[in-house]
């Protein structure tokens, strides 16, 4: 029982438990190629870390995991830097707005609710869609068919102005959709402490129609900068980044991810995705139950902000 004191959360926590949580989520993120923030932040909240601290600290951890992830993709030249930079314009705007929103909601005493509701909504939708998709893929594989991929088709995205050429992605599209996607991801990073890969990757594939091989690298590339900005903004605006907690999570995550990657290569894609979908839905359900059931204690205490 090695306890470590968290200076910002102002509580003592079992270091083995946090390392284990970091490693477990790191393992999953290595296995599925997801950031893991959407699992880590709720787990931190379940262990009693104040939600605002969990979100800001998790953003800090994602900087580390996305640096190593993006580096691996970079070596295989799977990063569309230009696309990443355009998305970052939106990402920065979204982060700034999101962190301010957190501050306002904290003053109003509604930040915990906002974080929980965001998670229930996003995890519920994503988990549901993933489950449907992986079940369909599983039945199709069983039937011997391969999933068809439509490409080169034009959609409404191509009617928008400010067109730019993205050589790496072999695209000539308007800069507006990437900027908007970036902004949404920045907002989610600030409010939920997630990288936003789970929104960005489908959006890049289905809306922007980027080639799949550059999607993950480009998304990781932009996540580095968005989560770095979110970390700094939370540190300056809300003082909610717990550096000790973040460091322990980073170490656990780095180790877990390595084993996850190996495990992921040995297992079947559709079954893995179905498994992840079920886990995502369980987390969403747990958060929903906490919101709906009458709590044991109706009252909460918080320091009055601005009166130190």
């Amino acid at each position: 029982m090695l306890q470590v004191y968290l200076p910002i959360a102002e509580m003592s926590i079992n270091i083995a438990m946090v390392l284990g949580m970091g490693a477990a989520v790191g393992f999953l993120s290595g296995m599925f190629g997801v950031g893991g923030g959407f699992l880590m932040t709720p787990l931190l909240i379940f262990t009693g870390i104040p939600p605002a601290v969990a979100v800001a600290t998790e953003a800090n951890q994602i900087v580390a995991s996305s640096v190593s992830g993006a580096l691996a993709q970079w070596r295989r030249s799977n990063v569309d830097i230009k696309m990443g930079l355009v998305m970052l314009i939106g990402g920065f705007v979204g982060s700034v707005v999101g962190v301010q929103l957190v501050k306002v909601l904290r003053d109003l005493g509604q930040i915990d609710l906002m974080i929980a509701l965001s998670y229930v909504t996003f995890l519920g939708i994503i988990g549901f869609l993933m489950l449907i998709e992986s079940l369909r893929a599983m039945s199709e594989t069983r039937a011997g068919r391969t999933a068809k991929r439509r490409s080169g088709q034009h959609n409404w995205i191509h009617g928008l102005p400010f067109k730019m050429r993205f050589k790496h992605s072999k695209l000539y599209i308007s800069a507006i959709p990437p900027i908007i996607i970036g902004a949404i991801v920045g907002l989610l990073a600030a409010i939920m402490g997630v990288g936003g890969g789970f929104i960005m990757v489908p959006a890049m594939i289905y809306l922007l129609r980027m080639p799949t091989n550059v999607v993950v690298g480009t998304s990781l590339f932009q996540i580095i900068f968005v989560t770095a900005l979110v970390t700094v903004l939370h540190a300056t605006t809300n003082q909610t980044v717990d550096a000790v907690l973040a460091l322990v999570l980073m170490l656990g995550g780095a180790i877990g991810a390595q084993f996850g990657v190996v495990a992921g290569q040995k297992l079947r894609g559709e079954q893995l995705r179905a498994l992840l979908a079920v886990m995502v839905l369980i987390v969403a359900l747990r958060l929903l139950v906490d919101l709906v059931l009458e709590p044991d204690e109706l009252y909460t205490l918080a320091p009055l902000l601005g009166a130190k």
Partner: peptide, 15 residues
């Protein structure tokens, strides 16, 4: 905040 980010980058690179 900047140091927290720097530490994260170093951990990510080392990993």
């Amino acid at each position: 905040g900047l140091i927290a980010v720097l530490v994260a980058v170093v951990v990510g690179l080392s990993a």
